[in-house]
């Protein structure tokens, strides 16, 4: 082979490996960096105490992260419960039943929604969802609420996640071969039966993957949630009460409270927790995907 072609081949190979290794190392570097910065906190508290305690008094040196972890989980679960069925059925309709004209209208709308800055969703949440929760939804459940609540955070977050999950689900359903659907129809299935028994079944790994990525994205979302969730350190199980998710804790306090000893480390630990939980969510969903694919 010509010398120059061999050199170009080597350089391009080296370049591709380098970029791939960089991407692989990124979460490790971030994780190690956060761990080092959070380490002073571990000298006085065990990790279990930190994540299981609800006592949050930074000025007294008490850093219980449970209200923040619970707040994050709560908001994420609510947003998933709102967004998942909407995305699933919308994606099924768009890929299996809609006319091409409707699809052509819907795609740009989804793209616009996906591209909106999260602060716009936050403002919309304050103007529409917070009053809706306060004046309408909370009274239905015989409770009072300022509207700034886990529930409001869940709704706003679900609307933010819908375009993201919907796009992935559309991609997933579009990969199911038409021949498979035709096979079910030719055996006497109705349109819905062919979707239920074949399209959805064939797409299980993709659906799980889309949901997993959606949840991971929801868990880490900050600005919009912070604007409507109330940011109050409480351990209430009432979704109409305020909450304080981990990302909001970091965004609200980083750079503000550094005069308090250990606060810096506590916020780094919060970031580390966020990283680990998102990693765990991804691993759990990967396991389900693997299991489904094997079946």
């Amino acid at each position: 082979m010509h010398f120059r072609r061999r050199i170009v081949d080597k350089i391009s190979g080296f370049w591709m490996v380098t970029t791939m290794v960089t991407i692989l190392l990124m979460p490790v570097i971030i994780g190690v960096g956060l761990y080092i910065k959070a380490q002073p906190l571990f000298e006085h508290n065990s990790v279990w105490d930190l994540i299981s305690s609800s006592d949050w008094s930074p000025s007294k040196g008490k850093f219980g992260f449970w209200p923040f972890i619970a707040g994050s989980l709560y908001v994420t679960i609510f947003s998933f419960l709102f967004a998942a069925p909407i995305c699933l059925f919308a994606a099924i309709h768009l890929t299996q039943f809609s006319s091409k004209r409707l699809v052509q209208i819907m795609y740009p709308v989804i793209d616009v929604l996906a591209g909106l800055p999260s602060v716009i969703y936050g403002v919309w949440g304050i103007l529409v969802i917070v009053p809706l929760v306060s004046n309408f939804l909370a009274p239905i459940f015989n409770t009072s609420s300022s509207g700034y609540s886990i529930f409001a955070g869940g709704i706003v977050l679900s609307v933010m996640c819908i375009p993201y999950m919907l796009n992935m689900l559309i991609e997933v359903f579009n990969t199911v071969p038409v021949g498979l659907k035709e096979a079910a129809l030719s055996l006497g299935a109705t349109q819905w039966e062919s979707v239920k028994h074949v399209v959805i079944r064939k797409s299980y790994p993709g659906i799980i993957s889309a949901f997993g990525l959606g949840i991971a994205k929801a868990f880490g979302e900050t600005i919009a949630v912070m604007m409507v969730v109330g940011n109050s350190v409480m351990s209430s199980h009432n979704p109409f009460d305020a909450g304080y998710p981990l990302p909001a804790l970091i965004a609200n306090n980083y750079g503000e409270m550094m005069s308090i000893p250990m606060y810096d480390s506590a916020l780094m630990f919060a970031a580390l927790l966020l990283l680990v939980i998102i990693l765990a969510i991804n691993l759990v969903f990967r396991y389900f995907i693997h299991k489904t694919q094997k079946q």
Binding site: G179, L180, A183, A184, V198
Partner: peptide, 8 residues
């Protein structure tokens, strides 16, 4: 069909 499409 042209190629087999076994149900999943």
């Amino acid at each position: 069909s042209q190629r087999p499409y076994p149900l999943p």
